[in-house]
Design a protein around this nucleic acid. Structure first.
Lengths: 191, 191
DNA sequence: CGGATCGTTGATCAACTTCAACGGTCGTGG
DNA sequence: CCACGACCGTTGAAGTTGATCAACGATCCG
């Protein structure tokens, strides 16, 4: 059933056979079509999400009401507003499907129960967050070290398949530049 | 001895009495004077650091050779280049003391042993990284939502004591703006 | 076919950087 | 204890990156 999550977990920790069927019971599958929402700003952040297939976009509305992406998640990524999730508070973010997407979700209290019942999963999540935090600091590093033009090409060269998959204006938003400027530097690069 | 780390851990998980003296054995205390280094770019990232007293500055040298801060750590914060630490690779960052600083440090292999011996500490570190990752995303959100001027005043108003403690040019670097521009907007604000 | 969505173009403009120079302060050595 | 130098914040002028705005074209989908 959620062989996929199981496979992902066993990359980091050993899972006893007898737990194979018990872990998935804590999760619920959700199918989203393109542009469907998992989370909206102002609402309680009840869930943590694991992407089985597809792509999620986490964004907020800036003061001009323009959506501003802060994070994507594709296959085998976890996503939530973890400050709001951990404190069970309201979030300021939206989570929306970029394409048709299938996720597993788990509530905060169920995740607490899950970790209580299978304590070795703490290690799994510790790894997940440790890597995510490290990657996030690298991202800040790039934001500070590179020009917007370099940021764009650095990203599209590092993740070419992703640049194919996601509309250009979303990549622009994620990288903190305007779609117009992306157009400009791409044209410049061609000549 | 490291009552302070113990106190911090027990905020998140319960620690059996008998472990009170055994946990600190994995750590080593290091005293740094102002400008002293814990980590240098190009070297193996062997340690994870916990600040007992003082303040650390994690930075890298940008293409012009100017230091660029990506993270501070004060009392009760953990700090390392976690991507390099997790993979036991070389780092591109420096970690330097902003003021006289006292830290605990633990090697990668000792931390693995520590977590093996006291598995409940996985939960502690999971919390640490979960919060750090959430905060890092909030930081990206601010970088995208606010003008540099707003970023500066937002920060100094949210952490006034910190703005007192750390030289202005380091705060500027951390926030991604030039010292000259900080001067300008502060003057503007006064009139 | 028709409308919404997405990328493009070019002109204008503001935010912020860069550079060079100066002044104050702190700490260290003589 | 004083003097010198390094360090840090400030100023102002000039320059550049990248945003904004408005308009147009292409494509996709119902």
């Amino acid at each position: 059933m959620s062989q996929q999550l199981y496979d992902h977990i066993t990359k980091y920790v050993e899972v006893p056979d007898r737990d194979y069927l018990r872990i998935p019971q804590y999760f619920e599958t959700v199918n989203l079509r393109k542009k469907g929402y998992l989370l909206k700003a102002g609402s309680r952040c009840t869930y943590n999400y694991f992407v089985l297939k597809g792509c999620l976009n986490m964004y907020f509305d800036n003061e001009k009401g323009m959506p501003q992406t802060v994070q994507f998640a594709i296959e085998n990524w976890w996503l939530s507003d973890y400050l709001a999730f951990a404190g069970q508070r309201n979030t300021g973010f939206y989570i929306q499907a970029v394409e048709a997407t299938k996720v597993l979700r788990i509530t905060y209290t169920d995740q607490e129960r899950l970790l209580m019942e299978f304590p070795y999963l703490e290690k799994y999540f510790r790894h997940i967050f440790q890597t995510a935090y490290g990657a996030s600091l690298m991202r800040v590093k790039h934001l500070y070290a590179l020009s917007k033009e370099e940021i764009y090409f650095h990203f599209t060269e590092q993740y070419p398949e992703f640049a194919q998959r996601v509309p250009q204006y979303l990549i622009a938003s994620f990288l903190g530049l305007t779609p117009e400027y992306v157009s400009e530097i791409r044209r410049k690069r061609l000549s």
